[in-house]
Nucleic acid binder design. Structure first.
Lengths: 136, 136
DNA sequence: GTAGAAGTTCGAGCGCACTCGAAGTCAAGC
DNA sequence: GCTTGACTTCGAGTGCGCTCGAACTTCTAC
């Protein structure tokens, strides 16, 4: 588990090198260890933290709030109830969004059904497709 | 089913007046009928179209592609197979995103579980909470 | 008829989350 | 030792989807 170069960290996490540096600048990541040359060396723990940041982003948390979450984390274990409260909000929002997505998917299905019916109807009324190339 | 003012159309659809005009400018909406005064009058069909645009947005379709979709719609029924293809792409993407969301939700649950365990553990080891206000 | 709310067009501005490019330093292979 | 490519910092730029404000007109209620 040797530390990774920024290129390896990017490959490992799917977060671009630019974004890794951006997150560090913004304080979402700690100051990453540097080799004597000044090049970044990502520890396994750093990688894990990047993955957690990805999770927070994926739940819909904006960078701004991720910063406050990171601050809570740095402040110590007594902020855990606050952190739970934050995560619960995004948990609930995610559940809501998933329900909405199911609804959107159903509407999309209905629309597709309508379109498919039109195409199907056209196929059994050959006079309409004169001049159009066959799809079979 | 009288035509609606822009204020009513905004209230009805949840799309802001600014955005309704923006969509019209961008060609996502037809030229909305105008009263002799120049004020917009949204027909029921216009409102329905706004709702369809909202669905497309909700599936993750960017404005840019919505424009091409609208163009297909204007081009006539022979573009229906193309429209089906477009909608199927967003359908698939939505299904994928929902699966990812389930995974994210599960990870969030695990994280919350860890946090809750820490809090629970602290509650049965009173010496750690000396000086901290009780939450009961 | 007048006040105030609501409408119009137009271009500019904003917030977000990156993303890029310049200018310079460092590392690995030959 | 030199080339090639990856790394560094820094500030600036980008793309998206709105969102706003100014300057003006029109409608509504009294």
């Amino acid at each position: 588990m040797d530390p990774l170069t920024i290129d390896q960290a990017a490959a490992e996490t799917g977060v671009s090198k630019h974004t890794l540096r951006y997150y560090e600048r913004e304080g979402l990541l700690p100051q990453i260890d540097k080799a004597p040359s000044g090049h970044r060396r990502y520890s396994p723990g750093d990688i894990e933290w990047v993955r957690f940041l990805q999770l927070l982003r994926a739940t819909g948390m904006p960078i701004r709030e991720m910063k406050t979450f990171v601050a809570l984390t740095h402040a110590g274990d007594h902020t855990i109830p606050d952190r739970i409260a934050v995560l619960e909000r995004y948990h609930a929002a995610l559940v809501t969004r998933m329900a909405e997505d199911r609804e959107h998917l159903a509407r999309l299905d209905r629309k597709l059904g309508i379109y498919r019916d039109i195409v199907a109807t056209r196929e059994v009324t050959p006079e309409h497709i004169i001049g159009e190339p066959s799809r079979t």
